[in-house]
């Protein structure tokens, strides 16, 4: 579904991603792991078009994403829930959800489903997003992503700064999204939990993919155990 080949990305003179290749298959959950500064956010931003690569290709469902304008990518099914939520703080929950719906306008069924998945959002519909709690903000950010009707939903550290219980809820929601046919590619620091719901994982270090395995193998990998699980 998503195929990235030989991607090189730089900010000015500093190259951040080196010859990066990876793929995500239809209806998979794939985790991208890596330490701070590895380039995970940069990769997701390149897929969404916030950053342009030096070279390489990003093919999504047979289309070259790099030929599609960044703001047209969501309607093509490529949607990112960004690091740190990036909600519109002075807009209400409802407005944040509606604005993601794209040209077609708000789809009632999708919205009902968002509220069913995250009842808390329904209660807070009229509240300004800037005043939501961290957990509610993350829910709203995911809800906003769903409203865009993604085929591929990417999430950048959705558990960042959340209490363990909320993290569990977030991972639960991701599993439910997959059941409805949405493909998920996400960045995480919680290695065990994220690999627990994923089919496969990639490990990114210093802008290079150093490991690509199915989740179980990855959890059993000595290096991963040592460095990321502290076992």
């Amino acid at each position: 579904m998503l195929k990235i080949e030989n991607l090189n990305v730089a900010y000015g003179d500093t190259q951040v991603l080196w010859d990066l290749s990876l793929h995500v298959k239809e209806n998979e959950i794939v985790t991208l792991l890596g330490p701070n500064g590895a380039g995970k956010t940069t990769l997701l931003h390149t897929i969404c078009g916030l950053v342009s690569p030096l070279s390489g290709s990003i093919i999504f469902q047979g289309k070259n994403l790099l030929d599609i304008k960044p703001y047209h990518r969501p309607e093509n099914g490529v949607v990112l829930v960004p690091e740190g939520r990036k909600l519109f703080p002075k807009m209400t929950v409802q407005e944040n959800l509606s604005i993601a719906a794209g040209k077609a306008g708000v789809d009632k069924d999708t919205q009902d489903w968002v509220f069913e998945l995250m009842p808390r959002l329904a209660e807070r519909r009229k509240q300004l997003c800037g005043t939501l709690s961290g957990g509610e903000q993350q829910m709203c950010a995911i809800g906003r992503g769903i409203m865009a009707k993604p085929k591929l939903l990417m999430l950048d550290e959705p558990s960042l700064g959340l209490a363990p219980l909320i993290v569990e809820q977030v991972f639960d929601i991701l599993t439910k999204l997959k059941q409805t046919g949405i493909t998920i590619f996400f960045v995480e620091q919680f290695v065990e939990q994220s690999l627990g719901i994923s089919e496969r994982g990639y490990l990114l270090e210093d802008g290079r993919i150093v490991l690509e395995e199915d989740s179980e193998t990855m959890l059993g990998n000595d290096y991963v155990k040592q460095v990321y699980l502290g076992i």
Partner: peptide, 24 residues
Amino acid sequence: TRFGAKVRAVSQDKNAAILMGINV
């Protein structure tokens, strides 16, 4: 209006607006 919401979105977070499919 939907158009006004887009304008407010861009003023609050330009990059998030692009991610929402808004032509900034």
